[in-house]
Design a protein around this nucleic acid. Structure first.
Length: 801
RNA sequence: GCGGAUGUGGCGGAAUUGGCAGACGCGCUAGAUUUAGGCUCUAGUGGGCACUCCCGUGCAGGUUCAAGUCCUGUCAUCCGCACCA
C-alpha cells in the first residue's frame, strides 16, 4: 500500500490534539525536562523555513526524552507586541489586536501542520492583558527596588520608526530593524539598571552550559575591565578624574584628553584662551550622528585647551589637556590620561598633534608603534616602578595612589542601562502616574493590568511622543498617593519586555497570584535546554537573564539563572546561498513544501541539511532523498522476513545504530543520526528485509524525526501503545562490536592489504597475520622492519628500511 | 584594527585523545521497468593513468611509523565588536 502522507499526517495531528498527547502535567514523582525554543513574532509573512529548523531540532529531543521516561514540557507562544504589527495596522486601518489575532491563527495552524509536540494548553501571548499584567507587575517591583528610574538623557532616536532605541538596537549607527538613520535626542526615559547586575551576568555564566560563542559574546558585550580611577591635578585647581586600565604606565602620561561634552570645559570657560575654537569643536562633535562617528573613526581630531594644564600626580609634571571625540563621555569618567608610548589610539593622536612620547615599559620599539603588550616588558623611566613587570607595577601604583589618596582600584563596564521607554502604541503601558505633588507614583498593583486604551490613530506625535498622549481621557487620572489630578505615563515598554520572562509563564500559564506559582517554578525550573538565534545573544538572552536574577532576588524564582543550557542554530539560506528575503526572490514557503512532500519529509530534510549550528543553503532536489528514505521505510512493512527478535547477523549494526542515534540526538547531531538510520535501512534491504522486531527498532529510532509515518507504521504492525511514550530502545555495548573486523595493513604508511581478522586479535597475531600476506611480504622484500604498530580494530603499520 | 569561526568531490556534508579521507544524501553515467515522461529498481561515480601505480582535505613549510586532524607561517571567506582608555 502506498504511503499517503497527507491523510496520515492529518490523522495523527488530530489524535495528538484530541488526546492532548503532549500536555505536560506537574508530576513530582517523575524527572522533568523543560525544552524551550524562542517563541516567534507572529509576522504577516507567516512561518519561514528557518523556524522549523530550531523547532524540529528540539522537538526531536523532547520526543526522545518522553520515551526515556522524562516528564517533558515543550511549550509555544507568541511574542506579539511590536512595530511591524503597528505599522501594518496604520497602513490598513485595522486594529493591531486584530492583526495579531489573524497572524497568530495563521502561525498556529502552520506550526501544527509540522507535527511539533508542543503543549498547546500552555500557549501564551505577550499582548494578552492577563499576561502583560505580570510584565507590568515585574516592572513595578523593579521600580520599588530602585532599578527602574526616569532620566533625561541623550537617546538614540530612529528618524524612520520615530522611536527611541536601546543601545543594543543600534547597529553600525543605524536602526537595527529598519536601517534608518539614528540621531541623538534629549528625552526623559524610563531606564532599567541592568548595570547593577553586570558582574553577576558575567560571573554566573561559568556555571552554565552555553555554547562558547554565546558566552564569549555576552562577556564582550558587558565588557568588564579592571583598572583604577586617578585624580589628576590641574593648574585651574580642579581635580580631573580619569579611568585607566594601565596605572602602571602613569609616568608615561604626557597629556590628557577630555570628551567634548566634559563638564569642566564650561567651568574653565574664563581660563581657556581659545574658547571659540573649543566651542566650534564641541558643536561639530555634537552634530555628528552615531553613523558619522563610527565611519570617521580613522583620523584623530581634537583641540588643545590653552590656558589650563593638567598635573600628573606620579611625577608632578604639567601636561597639556586636549578635547577629542575619541574619548567617550559615556564611558569611565569621560576623561583619560594619555600614554602615547603604550596605547595605540594615544599614539596616533600624539603623532598627529606632536605631543611628547615617553617610553615607560621597555620591550617594544616606540619609534615605530605603541608597545601595548602586558605580558612582557619591564618598567623604565618610572621612579619607584622601575624594574617591575607590568602586573607588579599595576598593583604597586594602585597601592601608592590609595595611600596618597589620589586614586583607587575600579572596575568598569561597557554595558549601559537599558532604555525602556518606547513612544508607540502597541506595547505594554508603563504603569506609572505622574503627580505634581508626589512625583512618579506606581499604579496600585490591584489595578493591574493597566490596559491599552482602544484607539484608532496610531501615528506617533510630531514631537516624538506616544500616540497615547493624545488620549487625554486615558492620560488624565488621579494620583493614587494624594488623590489629586495626575497624568499617566504615555510611553510603552519595548518589545523585549514580554520576552524577558515568558519561559516562567509557560510553567503555570493561568496563575493569577504571581507571574508563576512557587510550586510550578520549583518543579519545572530552570529551562533545561534553550535553543535560539545568535542575534538574540546581547538582547533577549541578556535581558531575560537580568530579569530572572531580579526575580530571584525578590524571591519569585528559586534559581539564579533561567537557562541551564543554550544552543544556537544556523540560518537557512536561499538556494543561491544568500539570505532568504522577498527582495531577493529566494524565499521558500514551508506550506508549499509540506503540501508537496509532507511534514515528515520537511522535518527530515531540515535536520539532514547539515551541521545544525552552521548556515545552510536550501536545496529543493535534496529533499527528494529524504522523501525516498521515508517511503522505503514505509515499504519495508511489506518486506518483513520470518524470524524472532534481531537476527544474529544484524545485532552489530542494530546496536550500533541505537547507540549512534541516541547519542547524536543529545548533541543535536541530527544529520549524522539520520545517516546512521539510512545505513541501517540499507543493511535491512541488503539482507532481503527485516524481521518484525528489527523493523520496530527502526521505527522507534525514527519516530522523533518523522512522527506521523512511524506512528502509522507502528499501528499497522498491530502495536497498541503509541510510540509517543513507548520506551526508547536500549542497546548492548558488547553487541556493538562485530566478531570480525577488517583492518588495513600499511608498509611505511602506504596501504598494501586489507585483512579480515577476529576483533579481539592480539597485537602479535595481527602483525604476524599482516606479514604473512603476499602483498605485504613483497613490499617488505629486502627491507628491515624497524617499527611495528597495531591500532586495535583499525590497522597495522610496518615501518621498514 | 581586535576577537571568534570556517576552508574537504560537481553540490550539502561525514570523519579530529593523530590511525583505511570522502560515511549518508543530492546530482551525474549506464542499464532495467514504462507507449513516453515522471516514479521505482540495479550498477558505477574524488582526480590521473601505461590502472595491485601515482596524486588528493585553501596555500607553503614542520613534527610523526602515520596529519583533514598537531605546530609555524600565509591566503581567503563569514560572523561578532568597533576609538570602552
Amino acid at each position: 500500500m502506498k504511503y499517503d502522507f497527507k491523510q496520515t499526517e492529518e490523522k495523527w495531528q488530530k489524535i495528538w490534539d484530541d488526546k492532548k498527547t503532549f500536555a505536560a502535567k506537574l508530576d513530582t514523582t517523575k524527572p522533568k525536562f523543560y525544552a524551550l525554543v524562542e517563541f516567534p513574532y507572529p509576522s504577516g509573512q507567516g512561518l519561514h523555513v528557518g523556524h522549523p529548523r530550531s523547532y524540529t531540532a528540539l522537538d526531536i529531543v523532547a520526543r526522545k526524552k518522553r520515551q526515556c521516561g522524562y516528564n517533558v514540557l515543550y511549550p509555544m507562544g507568541w511574542d506579539a507586541f511590536g512595530l511591524p504589527t503597528e505599522n501594518f495596522a496604520m497602513k490598513n486601518h485595522i486594529h493591531p489586536e486584530v492583526v495579531t489575532k489573524n497572524n497568530v491563527a495563521r502561525f498556529k495552524s502552520q506550526l501544527k501542520s509540522l507535527g511539533l509536540s508542543f503543549d498547546w494548553d500552555r500557549e501564551i501571548n505577550t499582548t494578552d492583558p492577563n499576561y502583560y499584567k505580570w510584565t507590568q507587575w515585574i516592572f513595578l517591583q523593579m521600580f520599588k527596588k530602585g532599578l527602574a528610574y526616569k532620566k533625561e538623557m541623550n537617546v538614540n532616536w530612529c528618524t524612520s520608526c520615530k522611536v527611541v532605541l536601546a543601545n543594543e538596537e543600534v547597529v553600525n549607527g543605524v536602526c537595527e530593524r529598519c536601517g534608518g538613520e539614528v540621531v541623538h535626542k534629549v528625552k526623559s526615559q524610563w531606564m532599567l539598571k541592568i548595570t547593577e547586575y553586570a558582574d553577576r551576568l558575567i560571573d554566573d555564566l561559568d556555571g552554565l552550559d552555553f555554547i562558547e560563542r554565546v558566552a564569549t559574546q555576552q562577556k564582550n558585550w558587558i565588557g568588564r575591565s579592571h583598572g583604577a580611577e586617578v585624580n589628576f591635578g590641574s593648574t585651574a585647581g580642579d581635580d580631573i578624574t580619569v579611568y585607566t586600565t594601565r596605572p602602571d604606565t602613569m609616568f608615561g602620561a604626557t597629556y590628557m584628553v577630555l570628551a567634548p561634552e566634559h563638564k569642566l570645559v564650561e567651568k574653565w570657560a574664563s581660563l581657556i584662551q581659545n574658547m571659540d575654537e573649543v566651542r566650534a569643536y564641541q558643536d561639530a562633535a555634537a552634530r555628528k550622528s552615531d553613523l558619522e562617528r563610527t565611519e570617521l573613526n580613522k583620523d584623530k581630531t581634537g583641540v588643545e585647551l590653552k590656558g589650563v594644564k593638567g598635573i600628573n600626580p606620579a611625577n608632578g609634571k604639567e601636561i597639556p589637556i586636549f578635547l577629542s571625540d575619541y574619548v567617550l563621555a559615556t564611558y569611565g569618567t569621560g576623561a583619560i590620561m594619555a600614554v602615547p608610548a603604550h596605547d595605540t589610539r594615544d599614539y596616533e593622536f600624539a603623532k598627529a598633534f606632536g605631543t611628547e612620547i615617553v617610553e615607560v615599559v621597555a620591550g617594544g620599539d616606540i619609534e615605530k608603534e605603541a608597545f601595548t603588550d602586558c605580558a612582557t616588558g619591564t618598567l623604565v623611566n618610572s621612579g619607584f616602578l622601575n624594574g617591575k613587570s607590568v602586573e607588579e607595577a599595576k598593583a604597586a601604583m594602585i597601592a601608592w595612589l590609595e595611600k596618597e589618596g589620589k586614586g583607587h582600584a575600579k572596575v568598569n563596564f561597557k554595558l549601559r542601562d537599558w532604555v525602556f521607554s518606547r513612544q508607540r502604541y502597541w506595547g505594554e503601558p508603563i504603569p506609572m502616574i505622574h503627580c505634581e505633588q508626589c512625583g512618579w507614583v506606581p499604579v496600585p498593583e490591584n489595578e493591574l493590568p493597566l490596559r491599552l486604551p482602544e484607539i484608532s490613530d496610531f501615528e506617533p506625535g510630531e514631537g516624538g511622543e506616544s500616540p497615547l498622549a493624545r488620549h487625554t481621557e486615558w492620560v488624565n487620572t488621579t494620583c493614587p498617593c494624594c488623590g489629586g489630578a495626575a497624568k499617566r505615563e504615555t510611553d510603552t515598554m519595548p518589545q523585549w519586555a514580554g520576552s524577558s520572562w515568558y519561559f516562567l509563564r509557560y510553567m503555570d500559564p493561568t496563575c493569577d497570584t504571581a507571574p508563576v506559582s512557587k510550586e510550578a517554578v520549583e518543579y519545572w525550573g530552570p529551562v533545561d535546554w534553550y535553543n535560539g538565534g545568535m542575534e538574540h545573544t546581547t538582547l533577549h538572552l541578556l535581558y531575560s537573564r537580568f530579569w530572572h536574577k531580579f526575580l530571584y532576588d525578590i524571591g519569585v524564582v528559586p534559581t539564579k539563572e533561567p537557562y541551564a543550557k543554550r544552543t544556537s542554530h544556523g540560518m537557512i539560506l536561499g538556494e543561491n546561498g544568500e539570505k532568504m528575503s522577498k527582495s531577493r526572490g529566494n524565499v521558500v514557503n514551508p506550506d508549499d513544501v509540506i503540501a508537496e512532500y509532507g511534514a515528515d519529509t520537511l522535518r527530515m530534510y531540515e535536520m539532514f541539511i547539515g551541521d545544525f549550528e552552521k548556515a545552510a543553503p536550501w536545496n529543493t532536489s535534496s529533499i527528494k532523498g529524504c522523501k525516498r528514505f521515508l517511503e522505503r521505510v514505509w515499504n519495508l512493512n511489506e518486506k518483513l522476513v520470518e524470524g524472532e527478535g534481531i537476527r544474529s547477523e544484524m545485532e552489530g549494526i542494530v546496536n550500533r545504530t541505537i547507540k549512534k542515534v541516541s547519542e547524536d540526538i543529545e548533541c543535536l547531531k541530527h544529520n549524522t543520526a539520520i545517516a546512521a538510520m539510512m545505513s541501517l535501512l540499507n543493511e535491512y534491504e541488503a539482507k532481503g528485509g527485516a524481521t518484525r522486531d528489527e523493523y520496530k527498532v527502526l521505527l522507534q529510532l525514527l519516530n522523533p524525526f518523522a512522527p506521523h509515518l512511524t506512528e502509522e507504521a507502528w499501528q499497522q504492525l498491530g502495536m497498541e501503545q503509541e510510540l509517543a511514550y513507548y520506551p526508547w530502545p536500549q542497546y548492548d555495548e558488547a553487541k556493538c562490536v562485530e566478531s570480525t573486523v577488517e583492518i588495513a595493513v600499511q608498509v611505511n604508511g602506504k596501504i598494501k592489504a586489507r585483512l579480515t581478522v577476529a576483533s579481539d586479535i592480539s597485537a602479535e597475531d595481527a602483525i604476524a597475520t599482516a606479514k604473512a600476506d603476499a602483498n605485504v611480504a613483497a613490499a617488505l622484500e629486502g627491507k628491515t622492519v624497524v617499527k611495528e604498530i597495531y591500532v586495535p580494530g583499525k590497522l597495522v603499520n610496518l615501518a621498514a628500511k
